[in-house]
Nucleic acid binder design. Structure first.
Length: 889
RNA sequence: GCGGGCGUGAUGGAAUGGUAGACAUACCAGACUUAAAAUCUGUUGGGCCUUGUGCCCGUGUGGGUUCGAGUCCCACCGCCCGCACCA
């Protein structure tokens, strides 16, 4: 945003000289561009960041989630990689062999979309984007081992992935079954969820249908229990991610039993039901089955009304969100079932659109009194509501009357109106256990443990992905390809024609010759599988490949044993569930098939989820475009005035929306390259780490970037002065050195706990102390060298420069991390606040090791306390040593 | 709809249940300058008066636990992330 003063950033003081005079010191100015180029070259020459297993040093593997090669590096990337870089450089300074690699998650739809909208080929588009992004990343001065780089679309990578697939297949970890996809009936093609907009195909606009297709699946649900239990051991993962994964896996204990079907069609004498609330069985008012339930499918065959209803239910996308948000609809089949406890009690059977065939048995019973969804349903179809329990006390209106389902926590004790195997006042949990035991004893049903986690469907009917290495043979069926034939490479064209993705459907299936092959089993003619793999497969083992990226097998055991696990993994919270869960599954599957050691079952020892980089957006408040859509202005197009923010050119008022996710369509993307070219990489790095805690979003502001730049210039100036200083010992040396040791302690702790913003705040404070210090030259230089070391992980180029300027030995990256001297950290006295009834009223200064009793005595003698007590004895005195004194009167 | 998270001055934010607002931005004032920029110094949560080592209010809203709550618990509001074919 341009400010009214029209001030622009301007570092050029003297166009020719790098020298200018201030006082009597001749100093060079902070020239980020030349400093950064110089040190990047020095690191490259020395091979500083090439990871090795040598020297008997402990290893440290730090990994940031690799990017999709969109072709544009954005600030979110800069923040993500800078965080990893701080950790990597810090670990190098503390004597570790560090592996810090980078690659590209390069398969996926955007490349196909680009080819459709602007011509060209997904492969060319992707590789050219990768080149661009590498060029954009290199000036950041990241401590990456570029020699290990790969893209998942490299045949060398996806060929090894095909080998993994074959091993998984052999180990029984992959199988085929039918599953529903989004089907566009006009384009005759499968759509991704994001291509379904309001239930319609994004290009055809046709109503999307759910259709079954035979697909490949990984047996991740077989590992549900193991994946769930192992979460407890992930000590250095955020609690929220662990909780999300636990909920996603969704272990539940319930009752499986059957309702006897009265006069059902042939072959259907019962409806098998799974419920997590068997305690509410006496409040059942209907049985619901999924439109995809075998009984529903049977009924729709000769009942056009049911067929029409089921067809209606199958409209729309496949996402759980769409299903759950859709209006709850049911169709009375006219069939009834018998209640298991009372054979004269009949319940109607409905087909209902909110019941998923994938979960449980595809059939439920509805208890409207204790489930809002069921209650809404029965009110629509005029079915009874029967409460089975109520609160222990209070004026509770039963759901029968109130229209509100009563759904207390299962751990809450309630009063049972219709218990059938337990006391009148127990918790829901106790009642569920008793209900399951009762049903088992009376042969009504069985206690069953189920998981919400479904098997992972990996088939995609798309071109730009890793081909699934199997062939279809008329005589042998589905046959795995031979490993010596790998990689099964994607064809560049469609044989006689160039690749055409604007044509709906998969070019691999259309290709005139690519499918043709010989059957590995019988040698006869066969056809290749044309589905490719989900791109989540690509990102589920890249961390393992980085340990030996050029190996002739998926991994190299020796390298994997040395480097695995990833000690610190860093990425966005949006990957909390799928990517991380799939990677955990893959690590186990790779261990089973001999590609990873037993110890690498949980591949990520520590996880950190960082926030986004946001920027205010400027929305035109006076008009919209011709289609009625909002108009967004670039920061440079608007200016702030006293009475608001306006478009400079037209004078129109704009609405300032702070902290919006950077997005091209909102015109609020800040290009890191511009920042680097005007301020330098160290400024960009410093800024993205400062101000906001790393796990939260950070808002990019022009003033913040300028402030970072000014601070770095200030440090440079202080260092220049310290280097030139000839002051002898001044008596203030000890105070400065004490500050130095405290800064070393605090910054080290902050870096180790991902408190980069706190580390930076501490460095500001230390810099202020240093600037004001009257200490002699030696102490100043020592303090400034420490400052350089502490800043080195964040602003490595500037740190090298001032380290050298101050006579530091070698490169700062090779210098051992400074250690705080405990003796310098001891404080003789502490200031204790005195509270009266929890409110701060005074403070006292006492010796740090003074006893509780002594502190109490001093506090009670304090004027303010005496006044507050007014002759009375205090009711209570709390003394927290070194912290606080609270007097209750 | 379901699961998870977040909410503190003008702004970004700090604060093992223990002095709310560290550090920075912005603003204002001063020094330097012919002037501006840069730099340096200082002030700044709101209110009140008796101007003090003063009092009251204050961490989205409403309750609760505690000697003490931004922090823990409950409910509500708002925003963000995920929901299995976006990566």
């Amino acid at each position: 945003m341009r400010r009214r003063t029209g001030r622009r950033h301007n570092l050029a003081i003297s166009p020719l000289g790098l020298l200018y005079a201030q006082g009597n010191i001749i100093m060079s100015r902070y020239d980020a561009a030349s400093i950064e180029a110089k040190w990047q070259e020095a690191w490259e020459k020395a091979g500083t960041f090439t990871a090795t297993m040598e020297g008997g040093k402990p290893k440290y593997y730090v990994l940031e989630m690799f990017p999709y090669p969109s072709g544009k590096l954005h600030m979110g990337h800069v923040r993500n990689y800078t965080m990893g870089d701080v950790i990597a450089r810090y670990k190098m300074s503390t004597g570790h062999n560090v592996l810090h690699p980078m690659g590209f998650d390069a398969f996926g739809m955007p490349a196909e979309n680009a080819a459709i909208s602007s011509g060209g080929h997904p492969k060319d588009w992707t590789y050219s984007n990768i080149d661009t992004m590498v060029d954009q990343m290199k000036p950041l001065g990241l401590s990456l081992d570029w020699s290990r780089m790969f893209a998942t679309c490299d045949p060398e990578y996806y060929g090894q992935q095909q080998a993994l697939f074959l091993d998984f297949l052999e180990a029984g970890l992959v199988y085929r079954k039918n599953a529903v996809v989004n089907w566009d009936p006009v384009d005759m093609t499968v759509l991704a969820n994001e291509q379904v907009i309001d239930g319609k195909g994004w290009r055809s606009g046709a109503d999307v249908e759910r259709r079954e297709l035979t697909q490949w699946f990984f047996r991740i649900s077989d590992m549900a229990e193991e994946l769930l239990d192992a979460i407890d051991g992930l000590d250095n993962w955020p609690a929220k991610v662990k909780l999300m994964q636990q909920n996603w896996i969704g272990k539940s204990r319930g009752l499986q039993f059957a309702f006897g079907l009265i006069d059902g069609p042939e072959g259907f004498d019962r409806v098998e039901v799974y419920t997590t609330r068997p305690d509410t069985l006496m409040g059942a008012s209907f049985v619901g089955i999924s439109p995809d339930h075998p009984l529903a499918k049977h009924l729709e065959k000769d009942n056009p009304e049911i067929a029409a209803f089921c067809a209606e239910c199958r409209k729309g996308g496949t996402t759980e969100e769409a299903l759950e948000k859709a209006e709850k609809k049911g169709f009375n089949t006219g069939l009834t079932v018998r209640h298991p406890f009372d054979t004269s009690w009949e319940l109607p059977v409905y087909i209902a659109n909110f019941i998923l065939m994938d979960y449980g048995t595809g059939a439920i019973f509805g208890c409207p009194a204790h489930d809002q969804r069921d209650l809404d349903f029965v009110r629509k179809y005029d079915l009874p509501v029967v409460s089975t329990f109520a609160p222990l006390s209070g004026d509770h209106v039963l759901p029968e009357e109130s229209g509100e389902a009563y759904v207390p926590a299962k751990s809450e004790k309630v009063r049972w109106l219709k218990p059938y195997a337990w006391d009148e006042e127990v918790t829901g949990e106790e009642a569920i256990d008793a209900a399951i035991a009762f049903c088992e004893d009376n042969a009504v049903g069985q206690g069953v443990t189920k998981f919400r986690l479904r098997d992972w469907g990996l088939s995609r009917q798309r071109y730009w992905g890793c081909p699934i290495p199997v062939v279809h043979c008329d005589t042998c069926g589905v046959v795995p390809e031979k490993k010596e034939n790998l990689p099964i490479e994607l064809p560049y064209d469609e044989g006689d024609k160039p690749l055409d993705l604007s044509n709906p459907g998969n070019p691999l299936a259309r290709h005139p010759t690519w499918r043709d092959c010989t059957c590995p089993a019988c040698g006869g003619k066969a056809l290749r599988e044309t589905d490719t793999m989900d791109t989540f497969v690509d990102s589920s083992w890249y961390f393992a490949r980085f340990t030996a990226p050029r190996a002739e097998t998926p991994t190299d055991m020796e390298a994997a044993k040395y480097w695995m696990n990833v000690d610190q993994y860093i990425g966005g919270i949006e990957h909390a569930i799928l990517h991380l869960l799939y990677s955990r599954f893959f690590a186990r599957a790779m261990q089973i098939t001999g590609h990873l050691p037993e110890t690498a079952k949980e591949p990520f020892d520590a996880l950190f989820t960082q926030g986004m980089v946001t920027h205010a957006i400027y929305k035109n408040a006076e008009r919209t475009d011709e289609n009625g859509r909002a108009i967004y202005h670039y920061p440079a197009e608007v200016e702030e005035r006293e009475n608001g923010t306006f478009v400079i050119a037209t004078g129109e008022q704009v609405e300032v929306i702070p902290s919006a996710k950077m997005s091209k369509s909102k015109n609020n993307v800040v290009d890191p390259l511009n920042i680097i070219s005007s301020y330098g990489a160290d400024t960009a790095r410093w800024f993205v780490l400062s101000d906001s805690p790393p796990e939260r979003d950070v808002e990019w502001t022009a003033s913040g970037a300028e402030a970072s730049s000014k601070y770095l210039a200030r440090v440079f100036r202080i260092a220049t002065e310290a280097a030139a200083s000839e002051k002898g010992p001044q008596g203030a040396d000890e105070a400065l050195l004490k500050e130095m040791h405290k800064a070393i302690r605090d910054v080290t702790l902050s870096i180790e706990s991902f408190g980069f913003n706190a580390a930076i705040a501490r460095l500001y404070a230390f810099t202020n102390a240093l600037a004001k210090s009257k200490a002699g030259a030696d102490a100043q230089r020592a303090a400034t060298r420490a400052l350089a070391q502490l800043m080195a992980p964040m602003t490595p180029h500037l740190a090298e420069e001032i380290w050298t300027m101050l006579g530091g030995e070698g490169q700062v990256i090779d210098a051992p991390w400074p250690v705080a001297d405990e003796a310098m950290l001891v404080e003789a006295s502490v200031t204790l606040p005195i509270q009266i009834n929890g409110k701060r009223r005074a403070e006292i200064s006492v010796a740090a090791d003074l006893s509780k009793e002594e502190v109490e005595k001093i506090a009670l003698a304090h004027e303010a306390v005496v006044k507050a007590l007014d002759g009375q004895a205090p009711k209570k005195i709390i003394v927290v040593p070194g912290r606080i004194v609270n007097v209750v009167v």
